[in-house]
């Protein structure tokens, strides 16, 4: 999906995305990756522009790039793959209260559950565990469980307000090809212009 797109605008200019395995104390911190290479902070998207990918040894060598310390494996019984560590969207400038106030009609998602992502198309689905309706700039009633569905690259482009309240999320496990590795993620309060919400009250 992001093949051959380094240097191109792939997200809203507000968005900077970093993968950083050196964040001591975070769930995805690894120090040294599972191929023996030191981990580091890698900026993947800077002000909306794709700057780099993550690399393990074999793929970096094949493409003539430098390893980025992202070769990870679940255990001795698994082969290394390119995997994230702590991935996050850096803080913006807005007060989160102002973001809600600036939203006439929307949904405030307080907690997402599990989900699924198609990495080729970027289509994703996440369950909303806790969500509320926003009406005329105020959080009003809670919503029952439903799904949030969208396309990752499109959502990155549709981010129009970014809060100054950056926080890392809870400990996570990223599963890929049957291998699970501990990861961290983080972001500030952010607003996406448009997304589809599934439920029975359409």
């Amino acid at each position: 999906m992001y093949r051959d797109k380094v240097g191109q605008l792939v997200a809203s200019p507000l968005v900077t995305v970093v993968d950083d395995g050196t964040m001591t104390g975070e769930w995805g911190a690894i120090g040294i990756d599972d191929e023996g290479h030191p981990t580091q902070s890698n900026t993947l998207i800077e002000n909306g522009v794709l700057t780099d990918y993550m690399w393990d040894y074999i793929r970096a060598r094949r493409e003539g790039r430098r390893q980025s310390g992202n070769g990870r494996r679940q255990s001795y019984a698994d082969l290394p793959m390119v995997r994230m560590t702590n991935t996050f969207v850096t803080a913006g400038k807005e007060d989160p209260e102002d973001i809600i106030r600036a939203t006439e009609r929307g949904v405030y998602v307080a907690k997402l559950g599990g989900g699924q992502v198609d990495t080729a198309s970027g289509d994703f689905v996440f369950g909303m565990v806790e969500a509320y309706l926003i009406e005329n700039g105020e959080i009003t009633e809670p919503l029952r469980e439903g799904n949030l569905i969208g396309n990752g690259p499109q959502v990155l482009k549709d981010i129009d307000l970014l809060g100054n309240d950056f926080a890392m999320g809870g400990p996570g496990t990223c599963g890929k090809d049957g291998q699970g590795v501990p990861v961290g993620d983080g972001c500030p309060t952010l607003r996406v212009k448009s997304m589809t919400i599934g439920g029975t009250a359409a």
């Binding site: 599990g114 699924q116 994703f124 469980e145 799904n147 599934g198």
Partner: peptide, 9 residues
């Protein structure tokens, strides 16, 4: 279908 296990209670 996708996300079946997150969207079903």
């Amino acid at each position: 279908v996708s996300g079946l296990h997150s969207g079903v209670n």
